[in-house]
């Protein structure tokens, strides 16, 4: 696949920190509307890849294209978010002192300028949209609670809800089920599949059962490069992947 047909296209991306090669000629492309799972052992470069895509880390070399025209390697977090790339972090980082409702309100796609927010009034349509999102993530009942008081699983869902409210074209989801119970995990898989119907999604995850549950194409990362791509069954037969996961 070339860059023209991809919503996200990484080509020979290199990142090193003090001599440590975090990403090593990484190439990857995501089709519009696709959900892709990224797996790999610790230190494979998964989070660094997310950082590069969202502008937190500048790559040393390589191209990162969004919709074939925007070079993400030259933009900062805010510009990239405005383009339509949303990110959920590994650790929930919702706004603890705000209510669940306000967290979603802040994420809703609306004017992000200082004067726009100063004079902003929450419209009926925005309130409807908040209701809708809260319903999807099943947090209607706690909407007026401070988000600091949510359970860990609920915080993860709130984060996903904030992504939904932001309505980005591409969602990057980092370890959505870390620390979740089994029932929460399968609920999250359902949520993500629902979201993937209308969005392109990249999920980074350790939990193999969860990835199997998602039932999507998988890319295996190792030492900063993609070493296999295909269905989970296909990549788990790859000798290189077995070697990486089981140790040599």
């Amino acid at each position: 696949m070339d860059s023209k047909t991809a919503i996200l296209y990484l080509e020979n991306v290199n990142v090193s920190f003090d001599g440590f090669q975090a990403l090593n000629d990484l190439s990857l492309s995501i089709r519009p509307g696709e959900m892709r799972a990224i797996i790999g052992p610790n230190g494979a470069g998964k989070t660094t890849m997310m950082d590069v895509i969202t502008g937190k880390t500048r790559p040393d070399s390589g191209r990162v294209l969004f919709n074939d025209v925007h070079n993400l390697a030259r933009m900062d977090e805010t510009d990239i978010a405005t383009l339509g790339i949303g990110r959920k972090f590994q650790k929930p980082t919702e706004f603890e002192n705000h209510t669940v409702n306000d967290n979603i309100l802040l994420a809703l796609s609306a004017g992000r300028g200082v004067w726009q927010t100063l004079f902003a009034e929450t419209s009926a349509r925005e309130n409807e949209r908040i209701d809708e999102v809260l319903h999807i993530i099943r947090l209607d009942a706690v909407r007026h609670n401070a988000s600091a008081n949510l359970s860990h699983g609920q915080k993860q869902w709130l984060e996903i809800g904030m992504l939904l409210a932001q309505d980005p074209k591409l969602l990057l989801v980092d370890e959505p089920v870390a620390g979740m119970t089994d029932s929460e995990t399968s609920e999250t898989a359902r949520l993500l599949r629902e979201i993937a119907e209308h969005h392109s999604v990249v999920v980074v995850e350790h939990d193999m059962d969860f990835v199997r549950d998602l039932d999507v194409e998988v890319t295996v990362l190792h030492e900063g490069a993609a070493i296999a791509e295909g269905s989970l069954d296909y990549v788990s037969k790859s000798e290189r992947v077995i070697e990486v996961y089981l140790g040599r």
């Binding site: 937190k56 977090e77 805010t78 978010a81 949303g86 972090f89 980082t93 802040l106 932001q166």
Partner: peptide, 10 residues
């Protein structure tokens, strides 16, 4: 409370 997060929200 979370400056990074606000940047990623745009």
């Amino acid at each position: 409370d979370a400056e990074h997060r606000t940047r990623f929200l745009g």
